[in-house]
Design a protein around this nucleic acid. Structure first.
Lengths: 223, 223
DNA sequence: ATGATTCTTGACCGTTTGGTCAGACTTCTC
DNA sequence: GAGAAGTCTGACCAAACGGTCAAGAATCAT
């Protein structure tokens, strides 16, 4: 009985996409936990529940699999809705940006760790991304902040360094979660920890820029 | 002619210490660039300018060498002068703390990266450090901050999360220097970049805590 | 149905890995 | 100066590594 299990036309392409996604998802976890050098093809295969040769069939080399994973993470990274627009309210825009970044740290910690690991070791595979879209994005958004500052809508800050600070503070809840959890005496970070973290980061960013900060611990967006 | 080259009594022990330091210094750089899994004993040996078997003579295994390196970094980390004391001025104390951390990021970036890499991958080798001295330190300093807050000397903040934020913002200038340099279009970070970063971090921390922030880019401590 | 195409996989290969070891060399003790 | 103790290192090893491949299985177009 052929195509018994709900396999209409084009099942091939769909199956392929699913397999690739399955491998990338496993790779995200393994690379996040072990780094590039520490992750072996056998470990990656085992995590994906597939024979090693199968990964080589889809991606060729370990290096290529790693680059494909980085690309998928970068897509997600850049697709983050960007609320920083010239005619937006500075406080609301920055708050939205911080909340988005914090949400991303909570829901995709492995992706954040893979990215962090790559940058930590020199960002060899991200040169074109950094010199291209990332640099352009920072330049564009920095101009927006400079406009706000010139209009007296917020205190003077060095815009690029403000971004570095926001990235660092928000991503630390993914990348350094082991340290934060250990200090807070928990096996792992809770949603409440993330909420407190969000509130703290918001306070530093908003007040640091001379803006009003919402005092209450607002509702956490759903996972 | 024995002990010709300035080798008085006890030259043995001193030579040993020097060799160990030489190996650890090389290991710091290699582990920072490649991670634990990516660093091979041959690479470590080459960086130290010694045959591979010599490293095994002093440290036994790669794992033991790595742990010894982590220990030496932790010593340095904890030895950072801590200005946060109950009777200190909050603004001055926090400023001093941030400046110390930033200085450390500039002068010992490799050490910071090794530490970051370890935490990123789960901090397996740092469990006792995190659950012990680090947790105790955060607890003690958090009480100081709570005292300041209760006395109305600074705005309310969650002290542990404030520390997480400060660690993240300052260490990012070592750990993520590749990203920052790429965005700023430089081959590597300059002292001026670190000065601007320090100023930005200080502004966020101090104003975020409702404290006055020194406006001018003060003198950078010498390397 | 049938031949072409795409997937799947166990077995295999050359290289590199972390680690060992015997023996040469240096320094210390007496 | 003789012997003990500590240091150094080239040669070597088993295991694990990333990667290959041929041959079978599944799916496709016609």
């Amino acid at each position: 009985m052929p195509q018994e299990n709900g396999k209409p036309a084009g099942a091939r392409a769909r199956q392929r996409q699913q397999r690739i996604g399955q491998i990338l998802a496993a790779a995200e976890q393994v690379f996040a936990e072990a780094g590039f050098g520490g992750a072996s093809m056998s470990a990656l295969a085992a995590a994906a529940g597939l024979p090693k040769a199968n990964l080589h069939y889809y991606f060729g080399t370990k290096e290529a699999l790693y680059r494909a994973l980085l690309d998928s993470i970068l897509d997600l990274w850049l697709s983050a809705t960007d609320s920083i627009q010239p005619d937006a309210d500075p406080a609301a825009a920055l708050e939205s940006y911080v909340r988005t970044k914090m949400l991303w740290s909570r829901t995709r910690p492995h992706a954040s760790k893979v990215f962090a690991n790559e940058v930590l070791h020199g960002a060899t595979h991200l040169r074109s991304y950094m010199a291209g879209p990332l640099r352009a994005l920072v330049r564009e958004k920095s101009r927006v902040l400079e406009g706000w500052i010139a209009a007296g809508r917020m205190q003077p800050v060095d815009p690029p360094h403000l971004f570095f600070a926001i990235w660092a503070m928000t991503q630390t809840y993914a990348d350094f979660s082991a340290q934060i959890a250990a200090v807070l005496e928990r096996p792992e970070l809770t949603p409440e920890d993330h909420a407190t973290g969000t509130q703290t980061v918001l306070q530093l960013v908003l007040r640091g820029c001379g803006l009003a900060c919402p005092a209450g611990p607002q509702a956490v967006p759903e996972a």
